[in-house]
Simulated assay, not measured.
Amino acid sequence: MKKINFKKFLLLFCILACVFGLTACTETISSDSAKESKKEQKLAAVSTELENWSVDMIKYFDVTSDDDVKANAENAISIDEINHDLYIVNPEGMNVATVEFCNSWVKSRSDLGRLKSIDSVELKISDETSTLGTVTVKTEYEKRNCTYEIVFDDDYNLSSAAINPVYTTGEKMEKAVLNTVIGMGTVFIVLIFISFIISLLKYVNNIGAKKEEKPAGGVENAISQIVTAEEESDETDDLELVAVITAAIAASEGTSSDGLVVRSIKRRF
């Protein structure tokens, strides 16, 4: 009886394990594979519209002047209004990413020249949850080849766009050397400026020293003035004393003081 119960318990445990295993597999399929499959179906339905918009934007940039590209971007004039066609991209109108795309093109035009051909257009599903897919367009211009990477979100708005000109090894080395020279030149200029500031500090110290010397000079002047005043006062007192003594001698002798001359005065007390 015990053996039968143990077998039943083991059978029930195996059944439950299988049920939980199937449940886990079902959740994995619904959360990952189903979502990816849904995104692929959505992307396949609009792939032509996304590719057409990307190609038309590249052609629009090529035939439009920089000033007009800037003006249209500032006034939010989309390619729908320019080509008089309906696009699925940016259903709510031109967004910030599209304006940045226009600004990037204006900066890159001088490196590319005129458009010669569009070699390939490829649409791939995005690995990021916030974006739908990426259109990669390879082009050939007068000066060099260029690859565009245009990313769209789930609402068919332009999420970001990158313009990647293909530079030769020599051009890359030239840019690297130029960046190095500019960086080192900036550092040297800053060091020279700092050295100049440090050289001016000695004048600041001299100014401080002069300010400290001024009070001492003032005290010495005051002392010299006091000493001079005392000496002048002593000379005045001596002259008065000589006059009094001369008058006293003349009175005691009954003579005039004109002939009397006092040579020196010695104090006895």
Rank of each mutant, 00 (worst) to 15 (best):
D80V: 05
D80C: 06
I194Y: 13
V177Y: 14
K211F: 02
L115F: 02
A209Q: 08
D153P: 02
R267H: 14
G218C: 02
G113M: 07
I163Q: 04
F269W: 13
G133K: 09
P91Q: 09
Y87M: 05
E230S: 13
T48M: 07
K202R: 14
L11N: 10
I245H: 11
T147S: 11
S33Y: 11
P165F: 04
F188R: 10
E49G: 11
L239E: 08
V137H: 00
L16S: 14
E213L: 01
N157Q: 02
A162T: 02
A24D: 08
P91A: 06
K35I: 01
T136G: 02
D237E: 13
E92W: 10
T168H: 02
V63Y: 05
D258V: 04
Q41N: 14
G21W: 03
K35A: 01
I163N: 07
T64Q: 00
V151G: 03
S30H: 15
F188T: 04
D68R: 06
S130W: 13
N179V: 01
V219M: 02
S65D: 12
V69D: 00
N52L: 10
A176L: 07
C146E: 01
R109W: 07
K266H: 07
Q41L: 13
K124C: 11
S256D: 11
V242L: 14
N205V: 03
K138G: 08
L260M: 09
R263H: 14
M94D: 00
E27D: 06
L12I: 12
T139Y: 09
A73D: 08
N206F: 15
V137D: 00
S195N: 12
I265Q: 03
K175M: 06
T147V: 05
I226V: 10
H84L: 03
L50G: 09
K8N: 02
E122M: 04
R268K: 14
G113R: 07
N52T: 08
I245S: 15
F152G: 04
N179P: 01
E142S: 01
L112H: 05
I226Q: 12
D62T: 10
S117T: 12
D66C: 05
K7L: 13
V166A: 01
C14W: 11
T28P: 05
F196H: 05
H84D: 08
L201R: 06
R114Y: 09
K2L: 03
Y60S: 00
G208K: 12
S117L: 13
L241Y: 05
G259T: 15
T64G: 00
T169H: 08
L22A: 03
T136E: 11
I194A: 08
T169P: 06
E232K: 11
T26F: 07
R114D: 02
L200A: 09
E100V: 05
S130A: 10
S199L: 06
F188G: 01
S120F: 10
F9D: 06
G113N: 07
E27N: 04
T168F: 04
T64W: 00
K59Y: 13
E92V: 09
A222V: 02
A24T: 08
A45Y: 03
L178S: 15
Y148N: 03
I182G: 14
D85P: 11
E230H: 10
